[in-house]
Design a protein around this nucleic acid. Structure first.
Lengths: 236, 236
DNA sequence: CTGTCAAGATTTCTTCGTAATTAATGATTT
DNA sequence: AAATCATTAATTACGAAGAAATCTTGACAG
């Protein structure tokens, strides 16, 4: 799942550094003290260096000779990177980012459903049916339900046969997981299968408009669920 | 612009390796021969290693002890990464990816225009006006025209005040640049300012539906232009 | 005879400490 | 005052030693 190698000391170092930067503990523009970090994290220069290389690749830091290694402005972070998104949610979900995430979902997924209706092949429909079956089987088990939900939305993106849209799953994934984590355990779910099946049916029928609308309905329901939870929890 | 460091021998090594993999010269699943590469590229193991670390961070390769460093399946590439997209177009634009890119644009940008209409603040409108002015001034100069186009679309995404949408610019950028490169010099452009101004006007008026529609019109025109060029060039 | 399991060997990545390179800063000279 | 050059402080690169995981080999049980 993680794109950078998580094995060895190195992986931990990346994680620690990334979370510190993303949490704002190390501010934008700050030049970080390699020697101090090396001592504090008890790693060699090479390890620290390679960890920073990963963060460099994700646009988070930059190293210039004689000026040091510094944190790049937030506007340069690669926020569409799965790792970066995950790190952001590592310590407490930022509701603003969660909203942004859901907004992207509400843009992408109806469009994806529309495209899928014109492009889905037999294998895609099988995947979607499989996801529905998984969803039925997951009744009552929240963990399995989240997994099934993910499977469904991944299958939907795959059915668009657009490589870039498929890769948007890294954005969706975290949003979906966080939302499910939020909703989880607060209230009995309604059966999610019918609303999802409506999307699949429209795709199978080649009904673009219908698929798009069904997906919108599904997302609206998700919004209402989250709203309900937020009210119950008194959050926001 | 590039997220990984381009300085030193290291940057070149990343570029070479990335392009080989993206071009399919080094196939998916293939384990690459570090010793041979080291010798061929005439770099030390450390340099090669750090270059691979960058590619690892972008999901392109993975290193497992005793099994070697191998190319991950294409479905794991971080295609939403600006560098990865740029490398793909390094040797010859893949028309399939270009189509995918444009499809994403046609999904994102109208939605972005709609959001911008409800959220744009004075500074956003100033940016958009600035982009229009830049576009007017660029009349006749193709290079400046592309720059102005980019400025416009970036300003539009910024006006959504959604961090994730703003970062989509890395996806749009290359698509836009490639399209412009394709269209460039084949035929006299129509004046692009009016169609863009229509979008800005709708946003300023807070007209969501109008902004969305104006943007769709703009994108449709872009499609027609590319079609015309493809016919003229006899491509496809 | 076949399949499973465990211990060892080997290959490969991983990490280390040091040397070289680079670029900014300040001093010096014209 | 401007330009050049030396100094210096940081990243960048190197080659070798270390660690880890997989593959192989052998033995044992079914």
């Amino acid at each position: 799942m993680a794109q950078y190698a998580r094995r060895g000391i190195h992986g931990q170092t990346v994680e620690v550094l990334a979370r510190r930067i993303l949490a704002g503990e190390i501010a934008e523009g700050a030049t970080l003290n390699l020697a101090a970090l090396q001592q504090e994290l008890d790693v060699s220069l090479t390890v620290l260096r390679e960890a920073l290389k990963v963060l460099t690749a994700k646009g988070m830091v930059d190293a210039r000779q004689k000026r040091g290694t510094f944190v790049r402005p937030r506007s340069d972070w690669n926020l569409l990177d799965g790792d970066v998104i995950r790190w952001q949610f590592a310590d407490g979900a930022d509701p603003r980012l969660l909203d942004a995430l859901h907004e992207v979902r509400s843009i992408i997924e109806p469009a994806a459903a529309r495209l899928a209706a014109t492009r889905a092949v037999a294998a895609d429909l099988d995947s979607l049916d499989g996801a529905l079956a998984e969803m039925s089987a997951a009744e009552g088990d929240p963990v399995a339900a989240v997994g099934a939900d993910l499977t469904f939305h991944r299958a939907l993106l795959a059915a668009t046969h657009n490589e870039l849209l498929v890769r948007m799953e890294v954005v969706m994934e975290t949003g979906l997981a966080e939302r499910d984590r939020l909703v989880h355990g607060v209230e009995q779910y309604d059966d999610p299968v019918p609303s999802h099946r409506a999307v699949v049916d429209a795709i199978r029928a080649g009904d673009s408009a219908g698929a798009e609308q069904a997906m919108r309905g599904l997302l609206d329901k998700a919004v209402r669920d989250v709203e309900k939870v937020r009210q119950q929890k008194g959050t926001r």
